[in-house]
Every structure is written in structure tokens, then in C-alpha cells.
Write a protein that binds this DNA or RNA. Structure first.
Lengths: 327, 327
DNA sequence: ATGAAAGCGCTAACAG
DNA sequence: CTGTTAGCGCTTTCAT
């Protein structure tokens, strides 16, 4: 590992000049530049980011906090973040929290220890206090999730409206008995989507039985099956189901298929997120598309702006109803 | 941001003592320790990893190179890597290459620039020369993929044998006309799995028509559909299909369903990888399970060993046939 | 346009 | 057990 010293020596210039050549080649004279170039070639020199980081007190690393990498909802968001980050000279540290506060704490320390310059959090705001604490001291933005009373910048969609659109679609194609598979209402999006669901029903004069809103423990496939199983056993069986995530909807699909019923003839199903797999199921899934790539790329841009001291406002992006075979 | 200097000053000790307290508390006298502790508390001090990294010429960062984060095959592997890495004080830099050499080059530079201590590559060995070059100078292990004539340590499974088992299973349940959906044979695993397929057929005296081995461009769902479409149009239609990846198999499933045929009655399908979604399809997919978590965790351990100068041998792990509804 | 020199925050001899 | 000191590799004034 050649160092800048050795290059300087070999090129018979000072380290300052080599540094200048590295960061701003134009300001060094042509003849000198050539000598430096040659020395770098000869020694196969690569500047140490470690030294630069220390000197500049920055790491050019962004922490991306996600509950779980296996949830395909996040993959497109991550793509958006990564592309934007790299474009601006940052790299990302992808950190899974399993929505576990102690795991989260490890990653929060990474920024306290200056190993990272900022955080994009996609974790549901379970531990508001902790998050706010960090956000006060360090650059942090929330993506997809946000804290309604918080001061933290975020990029998200209008969950209430999206859910409203989803249910409206079911109503429009003739359904009157519409159930919902919701996730834990400790999550803001779950509460908001439920409101949208209720508003759509109310507006059309349809009634919802409490039993038709099934709340799952998590967002896994099996929870979707279980939810659907429960819904199928109701005295009055719904003819349509709105699930707050595609994976839950796919679980529901599976359960319906397993019972020998048909989608959409017997029961229509609509999901949420438009993950890749929603197009691979039998039948393909109607769903609400979130602009995931854009969410990622905008949150990265927001964070980088914050890091460089600029203020940025939160953003609410548009969603889109994607009609496929399941409705 | 308090520094170690300020802590030392406040605690009326030298910076060396504070450093000792941080790294090896036992060797500092109790009374001193208490003073240092207090100063750290008071100043809300957090050691800067930047300073430590520079001093120790290490970053405690591991680069993990994957073709694409959206391929669920990698998620469990990443979990294994991450758990092991964190346990040993490392963090991972998850880097998507899209199997694009120029993108790969960016990440290779990260290690040249000492921003990372080692690399775990899951990219297919397309650019052998480049990879070998890096492996000579820096700690690198390959996971899942490997270079048959290379000198790079790896952890993988026996692809030939796994494919052999898959096809043997199809033969055992009575199939005689068995097709294969393979991916590009520039990948070693594709060549190996094809060998296993051929060996199983040969051993049972079954014949394979070249037309029954369909080679796809990539590992996407749509390629699986296309492959199956082609296979269904053969003069002699196969009664079973072995796909080298679950996603391809799921695409095949979709195409079969769309044609009105039934799995497994009309055509049996077996996949490879046992990704999460293979259990969510209709019908559920028979597949070959790779010990993905273990592959990840072992490759991380191998890499960390390499970084600390220990030699490690390559490892070949066992696979497992998981029989479900599709066969 | 270039060089000398200070210093980012930390660790690790070495000496006592 | 503790302090002094050098230095990891780089950037950035401040002179010239």
C-alpha cells in the first residue's frame, strides 16, 4: 500500500501537491501533474479513504434501517436509495433491525461513533423517543413510515387515500361485503389504511362488521392465510378482501385456493405495494402500487441535503391502482 | 462531539489512559477508571471510529457483492453473513452489481481504498481475471458461486449431485419425459446442474432431446414462463420439468396454469433454492433446499479468518430435497 | 503554482 | 498502573 508520502517523494513534489492533484487536478501545473500521474501509476497508489475520512470528519456512509431484507417491499426502495447515494459519492450500510430496538440501538451507535453520516429509517415508529433523540443530533429521514407528531422529515404516500381507492375499486365492481386484513395498529400506516377502508364503505352506505377486519401479528404469508381462514368462517362471508400488504394478500389467495374457492369469482382480493411477486401468483394480484424506487431515491436525496446543511420538507408521493386478475 | 482529549483533560489523566479504559478497562486502576467513567458520562463522549480505523488501518467493514437484492435467494445468505459479521464486530456493505463489471469495479475500489477489509462475492465468475487479481491482494471468498480452476476459497453445494437428486426424484415418481429449464451456461452452476440432469437420465436409460433443455437469458419470472411455453409446444411434450431456480419454476407454473393444464397431474415441476415464495405458490413447489443461512455464516467466518491471517479451506455443504405439491 | 506544517482522533510502544 | 510521544494518511491553511 503506497501512501501519499511515497508518491510525493517519487514525483519530487510535496504531499500537498499530490493531494491537490487528487482533489482538484486543474490547479496543479501541467508538468507537475504529469510527474504525479506517473508516480501514482508506478506505485499503483490508491488514496486511503480512512485518512481522508478522519481529516474531513465524514465517512460518506449512509445507514439504511429496514425491518427485514426478506420483505420484497423494501428492495425497490433500496435500489432507489443506492443509485442516488452512489451518484453522490456515498455508500450505504444496509442494516436489518427485525424491528428489534436493541438491534436498532447498535446501528444508532454507528452514527454516534461517526461511522456514518446519516440515517434513512424505514422502521415503523415504535420507539419514538429514541428516534427523535437521534434526529435532533444527526441527519435522519424516514421513508415510508413516519411519525405524525414528530419533527422528522419523511417521504411517504397518502395511506388513507390509497386504501380508500382500493376499497372504492371493490365497490365499483359490485362488492358489498368487503373485509380487510390489517396489520398491527401500532403502525401508523395500519391505522390510516383502516380509516380509508372505513371511509369508502361509509360513503357508499355499506356496513362493516368488526369481525370483517382481521388484524395480523406480522406481515408474513402465514398470517395472510390465517386471516383468510378466519374470514372464510364468518357467518356472513365477505365477497372481497382488502389486504394491507401483498404478502398478506398472497397468503389469503393461497387459503382461498386451498378451500376450493375461486378468485375472483367467489372472492376478490386486493393487495398493497405491488411487489414483484404480486404478478407471479395465480391469479395475479390487483394491488396499490407505491412509487418505491422514487421513495428511495428522494429520501436519499433528502438525507444528503440534510447532511450538507440544507433544510428539506417532507414529501407525500402518489400511489396507483393496478388492476389485475384477482378482482 | 467530545474527543478523547477532552475526556482525558476532564478526568485529569492522559489520553492513553482513556484509550486503555476504552479497550481494556481491567488494566486501569479502579479509582482512575471511575474518574474516566464520569468524564465520559459528563461529556456524553462516544469514541470516533474514524480515528480508530485510521490508526489501526482497518475499517471493520465487509463488502458483500450480490447480483441483485431482489433475488430472494440471497436474502437468507445475507442474514447468515450479517449475524456472523456483527457478532465479530464487523458491519457489512451490501453492494448490488447487477452482474455489471463496471459496477463491480466501483466496489472493488472500495477495498483498494481501504474502506473495507474484505469481500464476499456471490457474483457468478464472469470476470475471472479481475476477481483473481483482487483475491491475490485482498481477503476474498466466494459464496455459492466459485471458480473451478481458481485459487479463491469458497463455500457452495454440490450442484451436480443436487440436480441429479432432483431428477432422480422425478424418475422415481414415474416420469420418463423430463425437461430442464437451465440458465445461461456461462455460469458454472448451470453447467454442473445440467451434468447432474444428464447423469440421472442416462443412469435410468432415459433419453433427453436437446429441445427439452431450454436455456434462459436470465433468472427472471418471465424467462420461466417463456421457457415453459416453449416446452409445451414441443412435438413430444415432457411430463416433468426441472428448473434450476425457483423463480424460473414459478414462471413455469404460471404458464402451465395459464394454459389450463394442471400441476402435478399433467406436468410435474421441481425448482431449486427453496426461496420463501416457493411455499406460497399454487401449487407449492417441490425444490432443492440449499443451506443458505449456513452458507452465509460460513463464508463470513472464512473471510474474517482470512482477514486475520488464518488460512481456510473451501467448503461444500449438503443440499436437501423438499417434496411438496408440484411433484 | 507549490511547499511547510498543523492536525483530524485514536492506539501503541516505551519509559518510568 | 500511568504518562509521553510518535504516527496512521490525508487535507488545508498560510506562506512564498
Amino acid at each position: 500500500m503506497a501512501t501519499i508520502q511515497e508518491v510525493a517523494q517519487k514525483a519530487k513534489v510535496s504531499v500537498a501537491t499530490v493531494s491537490r492533484y487528487l482533489n482538484n487536478p486543474d490547479i496543479v501545473a501541467k508538468a507537475t501533474r504529469l510527474r504525479v500521474e506517473e508516480a501514482i501509476q508506478d506505485l499503483n497508489y490508491e488514496p486511503s479513504i480512512l485518512g481522508r475520512n478522519l481529516r474531513k470528519s465524514e465517512s460518506k456512509l449512509l445507514i439504511v434501517l429496514i425491518p427485514s431484507i426478506s420483505n420484497p417491499f423494501y428492495t425497490e426502495i433500496i435500489n432507489g436509495i443506492e443509485d442516488t447515494a452512489i451518484e453522490q459519492g456515498y455508500n450505504i450500510l444496509l442494516c436489518q433491525t427485525d424491528s428489534n430496538p436493541s438491534r436498532e440501538a447498535i446501528y444508532f451507535n454507528l452514527i454516534r461513533n461517526q461511522l456514518a453520516d446519516g440515517i434513512i429509517s424505514m422502521d415503523p415508529t415504535v420507539n419514538r423517543k429514541n428516534l427523535t433523540e437521534i434526529a435532533k443530533e444527526y441527519p435522519l429521514v424516514q421513508c415510508s413510515e413516519y411519525d405524525e407528531e414528530g419533527i422528522i422529515s419523511y417521504v411517504t404516500i397518502n395511506n388513507e387515500l390509497a386504501a380508500y381507492h382500493a376499497v372504492k375499486h371493490l365497490i365499483k365492481i359490485g362488492h358489498k361485503k368487503i373485509a380487510m386484513i390489517n396489520s398491527n395498529e401500532k403502525f401508523l400506516y395500519a391505522r390510516e389504511r383502516k380509516q380509508g377502508y372505513e371511509r369508502a364503505l361509509k360513503e357508499s352506505g355499506l356496513s362493516s362488521y368488526p369481525d370483517w377486519v382481521y388484524t395480523t401479528d406480522n406481515l408474513e404469508f402465514d398470517s395472510g392465510r390465517l386471516a383468510m381462514k378466519n374470514l372464510l368462517n364468518q357467518d356472513i362471508r365477505p365477497t372481497a378482501v382488502f389486504a394491507v400488504s401483498d404478502i398478506l394478500a398472497i397468503g389469503a389467495l393461497k387459503e382461498i385456493n386451498a378451500t376450493g374457492l375461486h378468485v375472483p369469482e367467489d372472492i376478490a382480493v386486493i393487495g398493497f405495494d405491488k411487489i414483484n411477486f404480486s404478478n407471479m401468483t395465480y391469479p395475479t394480484l390487483t394491488t396499490i402500487a407505491q412509487p418505491m424506487y422514487q421513495m428511495g431515491s428522494m429520501s436519499a436525496q433528502m438525507l444528503i441535503n440534510k447532511i450538507s446543511g440544507k433544510r428539506t420538507d417532507s414529501i407525500i408521493l402518489d400511489h396507483e391502482l393496478v388492476i389485475r386478475e384477482s378482482t
